[in-house]
Design a binder for these strands. Structure first.
Lengths: 115, 115
DNA sequence: TGTATATATAAGTATATAGTTATATACTTT
DNA sequence: AAAGTATATAACTATATACTTATATATACA
């Protein structure tokens, strides 16, 4: 009896295509352990705000990430309830931790905290 | 002590981008358990020979697959010695077996055997 | 040697993708 | 209410991608 959950090939390739971009893949790895807002990503990736926003939209459209507004900021986090989260997680496991980017942000006083 | 082997993010996204195409992803899953030649893929995917050949070239360029000529045919197989094979394998594990395509080929007498 | 089969490659084309700039929207603060 | 900050979206552009068709190459076989 085989109880392994498999993912439809079309679906899997769609997810892999989305992760097949260095910016989005790094975002996912970062979000795995830290909530981040758009302006933090702008700083981390040294990319324009619209470029970051568009990457996040793709991740959100397929519901890999959730967003939550807190005041001016919109915080993004991993959607652990995603149907294919185990698949995503098994991919992210192979990637190096990205804590340095967060530490750098904190050192520069650019980490957004709005509690 | 953390002994997990991680993959550089640039490298990982490059691999994921390659797998982020339904044809190539299915090819990889098929090759995981069966050697196949170009003309078999042409039949399975109902795609033109150059289209198949070009997908296989991308997989071969990054050394995810090996090729071996036997007479007229060139057989492709998974490169289990690829540096990132564990990563690739952990992805393919989540995909449904593609044995049906092979069985169909055999039923139609289109499976190439050249021993 | 000539013809058929299998595969690769080159060149062209349509579409997808990732960025850009400009502008709109939403919230905060004064 | 006005100005500032954070984010989203629209429109545009350059490049990448996945095909196509035409042709070249390699092997098999009569």
């Amino acid at each position: 009896m085989n109880t392994t959950v498999t993912i439809d090939l079309q679906r899997a390739s769609q997810l892999l295509k989305l992760l097949g971009d260095p910016t989005r893949l790094t975002m996912m790895k970062l979000l795995k352990s830290h909530e981040c807002c758009v302006c933090e990503f702008v700083e981390i990736f040294k990319m324009s705000q619209p470029a970051i926003s568009q990457h996040l939209r793709k991740l959100r459209d397929i519901e890999l990430v959730k967003e939550e507004r807190r005041g001016q900021w919109i915080f993004f986090s991993i959607n652990e309830n995603h149907e294919n989260y185990p698949f995503i997680q098994s991919i992210l496991e192979h990637l190096p931790e990205q804590n340095e980017s967060i530490v750098e942000l904190e050192e520069q006083g650019l980490r957004v905290c709005c509690q």
